[in-house]
Design a protein around this nucleic acid. Structure first.
Length: 478
DNA sequence: GTTAGGG
DNA sequence: CCCTAAC
């Protein structure tokens, strides 16, 4: 292809890209946008985009949508059947209620997915479609249920067991805990926030980004009309943190616009995020003229350069939501009777949920220390705290440290009854503290009176009383 | 990846 | 609970 041809092609592509961009930034005009997209694609299939791409952007993974048999019927069905029916969950919750009100474009994609994919099955849905709302909590879970309506229940269960608890290889009991925690979980407000995610997500245009990417740089022969055998990596839904940061970002941008001199697109540094490992890279974004000054819309992914030579950066996939899911799943289990949900919002970075240590947890920890010794936090975690996911080995270590402190304090002031008054914040039974003290003498915490405390004293001591019998395997020979 | 220790 | 150095 010579250069002239290339240029003309790029030029036309550029125009069409602009059109699409207009579509993309108007997520609320539901019917129009969807049908327009299809007609657009119908017209330009030869050059610009292949069916797979379109379905990709609409959330259809294994698309039955052909251009010839264009889906007027399907789209009709979409309108007539009623999306809510399709998405109604097994437990009666319709997760799309909220979505459908607000989202429009993205949701239509999702709905098309359901309507057209007659051969949809769980594995496909989960692993390949990457349906943006899937990895969420309740809502997405419900969606998943809806997808599996026609599927044997065992299959669904096996799916969840296989995927959610893949690493831990839990029993079905865990699954029950898991699902229970979805049903009667405690944090309503977080749920609400999460439900709002797709709205913002749609408005940011994040999900729509690949559409334009597919549109621009590829040469015609790259567009496989059949779209067979091409797997796309799909952009994921941004995490809550991402949304927060983006919101802050957009607020900043809005402020800058209001301020007198807003001539240049200032490089707004991302608000200081303490945990850098969540690579939510928020790039400075240009506010498109279409965007309202609202949270989500202000941070739409800009259609930066329509020049095809400049490769557009893909928006970084936000970190997985699995962590959240797992945390939720564990929250229903065992001893989380008293669990405070203090969230300190320090500048956008969220602290981990502060969960008070229950007595049973402390007992387990002490047991573990008695069995494995101090410092074997991962062993203790794996064996005794495997069910409570939110307790990390570091947590165990910290707790043990605090217990030691407490036990020393107890030793100092020998007034046991006044425990409640002197230490109202620690309603630990004195028996436990006594045990901690005993263990502390036998298993001296590293560097904390390490050398002072009886190095010579071999731990054949009476600390066994708590859990009947140490198996004698790991006695710390000092 | 784990642990210790300071914050 | 977070962070980080040290291992």
């Amino acid at each position: 292809m010579n250069q002239v041809e290339e240029e003309s092609l790029y030029h036309s592509l550029e125009e069409e890209a602009i059109d699409v961009d207009c579509l993309l930034v108007e997520p609320r005009s539901d019917q129009v946008s969807v049908s327009s997209v299809w007609s657009f694609e119908e017209d330009n299939i030869g050059r610009c985009i292949k069916t797979e791409d379109a379905s990709y952007n609409l959330g259809v993974s294994d698309s039955n949508i052909n251009l010839e048999g264009v889906d007027t019927t399907k789209l009709h069905a979409l309108d007539e059947v009623g999306v809510e029916e399709n998405l109604l969950t097994a437990n009666g919750i319709s997760p799309c209620d909220d979505y459908l009100i607000d989202i429009g474009y993205v949701d239509h994609g999702a709905c098309i997915d359901y309507v057209t994919n007659e051969t949809l099955h769980v594995g496909n849905t989960s692993s390949e479609t990457g349906f943006p709302m899937f990895r969420n909590n309740k809502g997405s879970f419900g969606i998943q249920n809806s997808l599996t309506d026609s599927i044997p229940e065992s299959e669904c269960q096996s799916y969840f067991l296989g995927n959610i608890f893949r690493t831990n290889s839990k029993s079905v009991d865990k699954f029950e805990d898991f699902s229970k925690s979805f049903i009667d979980d405690e944090e309503e407000e977080e749920d609400n926030e999460q439900r709002n995610l797709p709205l913002q997500f749609a408005q940011t245009g994040m999900e729509l980004t690949p559409f334009r990417q597919d549109l621009i740089p590829n040469s015609p022969q790259d567009h496989n009309v059949n779209g067979s055998g091409i797997t796309h990596k799909r952009s994921r839904k941004p995490t809550k943190r991402y949304i927060d940061e983006s919101s802050n970002q957009s607020l900043k941008n809005c402020k800058k616009r209001k301020e007198p001199s807003s001539s240049s697109i200032s490089k707004v540094k991302t608000s200081t995020v303490r945990r850098v490992k969540s690579q939510n890279e928020v790039k400075p974004k240009e506010i498109t003229p279409f965007s309202e000054i609202s949270f989500g819309k202000a941070i739409q992914v800009p259609f930066i350069s329509q020049c095809p030579t400049e490769s557009q950066k893909t928006t970084p996939p936000p970190p997985t939501m699995m962590e959240n899911v797992i945390e939720r799943c564990s929250s229903g289990s065992e001893d989380d009777d008293s669990e405070t949900t203090m969230r300190s919002m320090t500048g956008g970075s969220q602290r981990k949920l502060h969960r008070l240590w229950t007595v049973s947890e402390v007992k387990k920890l002490i047991d573990g220390v008695a069995h494995f010794g101090v410092g074997k936090w991962t062993h203790i975690k794996k064996l005794l705290f495997s069910s409570s996911v939110h307790r990390t080995p570091v947590d165990l270590k910290d707790k043990w440290r605090n217990l030691l402190k407490a036990s020393r304090a107890l030793k100092g002031s020998r007034i046991e009854d006044e425990q409640k008054r002197s230490q109202p914040w620690r309603p630990l039974p004195k028996s436990i503290l006594c045990r901690v003290r005993e263990l502390a003498s036998t298993y001296p915490y590293p560097r904390e009176g390490n050398s002072k405390i009886l190095k010579s004293k071999y731990p054949n001591v009476p600390h066994v009383s708590f859990s009947e019998g140490i198996k004698g395997n790991k006695v710390p020979v000092v």
